Simulated scan of single mutants.
Amino acid sequence: MTQPLHIAVLMGGWSAERAVSLLSGTGVADALESLGHRVTRIDMARDVAARLAEARPDLVFNALHGTPGEDGSVQGMLDLMGLRYTHSGLATSVIAIDKVLTKQALVPHGIPMPGGRVVRSADLFEGDPLARPYVLKPVNEGSSVGIAIVTADGNYGSPIGRDVAGPWQDFAELLAEPYIRGRELTAAVLGDRAFGVTELKLKSGFYDYTAKYTEGMAEHVFPAPIPDAITNACKALALEAHRLLGCKGASRSDFRWDDERGVEGLFLLEVNTQPGMSPLSLIPEQARHCGMSYADLVQAIVDEAMKDVRP
């Protein structure tokens, strides 16, 4: 750090990931203060533009997750205000939050991703859009919010029951993808460096929102006990996806690996442009294993953002 900055930390908001954002933002703000920066903490509400205009920070650390902090809305506002901010910009955020647009941006460049299609939730009550097992997920949510795995034994009914709890009750449209058996892997990227690969071993169920943010429900194994070829492929794909989407600062790429198929069984599921910075989050964990403290990681994200030219 060359000099202390005035940094506004945006956190909270009103998305389904509000609680995680508050954890991320608090951790980031504490780290920035420990580094000697002046910090203004902002739990984002509808008056956020006025509060930022009043604060006049040198930089905005975007610790929001989900809509509107991750989908380009906040990025567009900050661009209009002429404020520097961390993580990815407007266009990248719009594409990466949308799983369909992400496929359209990455698959033509050789990034392996599951097939699938968008379906109307109401149509699920008439029949299955894909052969079971398959996965249903919101098109525009992160942190595995609203995921359902529909299995052959009819865990939600066959067809899916209209009154059975699931994401079809909360979203008008869902993305249906073939279920990929195997293992859950994730690779973090900061700038032009991939830290490595973590394997997520679950106590039960699958890696949904609850498993991600409930201590003890998932074991994080770093480095992942996988062949070097798979580690190298994950890191290369994460870096390439980061580059193709135009990500800035930190990102995290999530994978499924069918370990019976070798490299051919590796699929990128999504790229998170606002990865969590909570105590259970994966990027701080990978950075720590690579010799970078939490405060060092926060400062590195700040340094990346300060390279950006803003009016």
Rank of each mutant, 00 (worst) to 15 (best):
K212Q: 08
A233D: 10
V164H: 14
D58G: 05
F255P: 01
L237P: 00
D296V: 07
P223N: 12
A241V: 02
R38W: 03
I283M: 06
L280A: 04
R120V: 08
D128V: 11
A131T: 12
V28A: 09
R51E: 15
I180H: 01
D47W: 01
T198R: 04
C234W: 01
V74C: 13
Y207Q: 03
V9I: 03
V302N: 04
P4A: 12
P275N: 06
V145H: 01
D128G: 07
E260W: 10
P159F: 02
G116A: 06
D254F: 12
A53F: 01
S15L: 10
T102A: 09
L244V: 13
E270T: 03
D47G: 09
R46C: 08
P311V: 07
A96T: 10
K307F: 00
L124T: 04
G146F: 06
L266H: 10
M77V: 05
R46F: 08
E270W: 00
N62Y: 00
T273P: 14
P108C: 06
G191L: 08
P225F: 07
D308T: 15
P68H: 09
C290S: 14
A300P: 04
G142R: 11
R120K: 15
Y156G: 02
V9P: 02
Q3F: 09
A16E: 13
G262A: 03
K212E: 07
D71M: 13
Q299F: 01
D308K: 13
D153M: 09
P311I: 10
G66I: 04
M81H: 07
F255M: 00
V150D: 03
G12W: 01
G191V: 04
F125H: 10
P178K: 00
G154K: 00
K99C: 06
S21L: 03
R261N: 08
I230C: 11
D79L: 10
S73D: 14
S93K: 07
H6T: 14
R38L: 12
L64G: 05
P114Q: 03
M217Y: 14
A152R: 13
G157A: 08
F206S: 06
E199V: 02
G115V: 01
D58Y: 01
V164C: 11
Q104L: 15
G69N: 03
A96V: 11
G116Q: 09
L130S: 08
Q299K: 10
V20C: 12
V145W: 00
D254R: 08
G72K: 07
A229M: 13
A96L: 12
M1F: 10
Q75I: 12
G246L: 01
A152F: 00
P279H: 07
I160D: 02
M81P: 02
I95C: 11
C247D: 13
L23N: 13
D128R: 11
W257P: 01
L282P: 08
T26R: 15
L282Q: 09
A236M: 09
K99P: 09
R41M: 09
V94C: 15
A172W: 14
G216C: 08
H65N: 10
S15I: 06
G154W: 01
A172D: 15
D254V: 11
T231D: 15
M292I: 13
R183W: 03
L244K: 12
V74Q: 10
R183H: 13
A8C: 11
L200M: 15
A172P: 14
H65Y: 10
D43F: 05
L22I: 10
S204Q: 15
L23K: 13
T26V: 11
H6K: 15
P133I: 00
